[in-house]
Design a binder for these strands. Structure first.
Lengths: 300, 300
DNA sequence: GGCTTTCTTTGACTAGAGTCAAAGAATGAC
DNA sequence: GTCATTCTTTGACTCTAGTCAAAGAAAGCC
């Protein structure tokens, strides 16, 4: 998977990493905390409009016990309110109290002032350049940090993704979408199929499936990316992973279909080397059919 | 000084800051430390090819006592050697021992592997985009973090800068440079002059002077940037600051001269609105003379 | 309905990070 | 030569951050 990376690129990233973490980031932390431990300040910020301890634990990568205690401390300070959600009473949901909200506002104000001070010393042109560079870097770093893994289609993350996919296209297709049209887990596993899930920070943010259509032909289905991870180029990476899986399973060609309304998807398939072909299935949702010839498996 | 900054730019920078510090930076720290406290790991890395405790204290913003103890701990582990420099026996200079060097090498290897892993999941084109975006962001952030301050020309930082300037051009001018040709502190202070020093992370990295030439005319001299802070656009900022100082002191026009070999400087002056004029002084080092009309002081 | 898994809480720790003040040794300034 | 300043060291702390294990309460799975 890892392609050979030039030492120059590595050096550039490390330099930036060092510079940013030590200088800018450290500054930010220092101001953010002010009269409160940094851990608590971050936690307050991350709670935002309410979050379960489970989510917070994942997002901040904290020990469960440690988090539990910090939440209790914030509760004691009157900044946070904890409740038990109706749907699962093992969970605890933390929310900001009005006082907590004030505190977070103040944090935000300080961090804004810091960023403003930094940006203010640049002229407008350079500021625009910086914003553009930062947006590009963030997009690419997020994409780079996302891993695409092969998982069992019956596993929870896979099911969550398929459910998200179904809900998403149900809303976008004028005729709606019947979840019965989804692949069955047994079709997309083993020697003839695959199910890939993309993870960002441990959370599933996209998926894609490969199943057998004919001895030499695989079919790609359900390539989907959660809204919060779109416009990063992730769909291409998933597609790429599925093609590699197809090659590894001995397919010489992959096919796929798309709905008429999914015009961006069609453009992407074309850009990725797919050519439109006649209808090959009876999928009632499909309006366009594509095919791509795959390279033979290489030795390495 | 601070120009009005759009909320959008502020938001973009803060988002990036958060993303980078929490995700990428935190990862790096985690790997860097491994079986050693993070503080010590950073310190080892920062010592590099030798540094005085004074420098280290500044660069890492550590308490003097804390640093002293950490150095002693590294010394006890055989990773660092401390010596007293001949020129100032209050100072202590820390250097890596061979064992320390091995340790830092190992740190580097790990951090490289981390960066490589991240970059490796991008294709070559995107990797190039990321490297370019990162380089631009670093350059602009460094520039933004540099402050240009008016200081007494007799103060230590100012003298250090002038000495650096003199040494630099002495090496670049074919005929050398006589430090007697530098401005006198009293010329560049008070109501008719100014001396600016640019600071990056507390270290002076550039300077520029303004003195009186005639009742309505100021002269800009010794605009200089240390080698490590070049190509950021800092000279322009210093020049800009000097022009503002000139306006504030009531000058309607500023002049300056440059040596024949300083072609980049000439290009910059032209780009900043200076026009070439006939010789106006007897500076033996000068080959080109420039002038710029200044706006009248505005009310704000 | 029993068994496994998930989520949180509590107890009991450890070590790293950082602060503050006092004091001693050299320098620099006048 | 005196006096203020700079730089480092030492002592004496505090507190944050983080780990590990055990256990109880719910929920999910056949």
């Amino acid at each position: 998977m890892t392609q050979s990376v030039s030492a120059q690129d590595v050096r550039a990233l490390r330099r930036f990493n060092r510079y940013f973490t030590r200088r800018i980031g450290a500054l930010d932390d220092h101001y953010l905390g002010q009269d409160r431990p940094l851990g608590e300040a971050r936690l307050l910020f991350e709670i935002g409009d309410g979050a379960s301890l489970r989510e917070l634990r994942g997002r901040l990568r904290l020990d469960a016990g440690y988090l539990s205690r910090m939440v209790r401390a914030l509760q004691a300070q009157g900044l946070v309110r904890v409740s038990v959600p109706a749907e699962d009473s093992r969970l605890r949901v933390a929310e900001l109290t009005p006082a907590g909200r004030v505190e977070v506002e103040e944090q935000n104000r300080r961090a804004d002032a810091l960023a403003e001070g930094l940006l203010g010393s640049l002229d407008e042109r350079r500021r625009g350049e910086l914003t553009a560079a930062i947006a590009a870097a963030e997009r690419l770093l997020r994409l780079a940090a996302i891993t695409v893994e092969s998982v069992d289609a019956a596993a929870r993350d896979a099911r969550d993704c398929l459910a998200g996919y179904a809900a998403d296209i149900d809303a976008r297709f004028p005729e709606g979408f019947d979840p019965a049209a989804l692949v069955r887990p047994d079709e997309v596993s083993g020697d003839s199929g695959a199910f890939l899930v993309a993870y960002e920070e441990g959370r599933p943010v996209g998926c894609g499936a490969l199943r057998r259509l004919a001895p030499d032909t695989g079919e790609i289905r359900h390539v989907w990316v959660r809204p919060e991870a779109r416009r990063l180029g992730l769909a291409r990476r998933i597609l790429d992973g599925l093609e590699r899986a197809a090659v590894a399973r001995g397919y010489g060609v992959v096919r796929l279909d798309t709905h008429a309304v999914l015009t961006e998807a069609q453009a992407m398939y074309r850009a990725c080397g797919y050519t439109e072909i006649p209808r090959y299935d009876h999928n009632v949702y499909a309006a366009h059919w594509f095919e791509k010839r795959l390279p033979r498996p290489s030795g390495d």
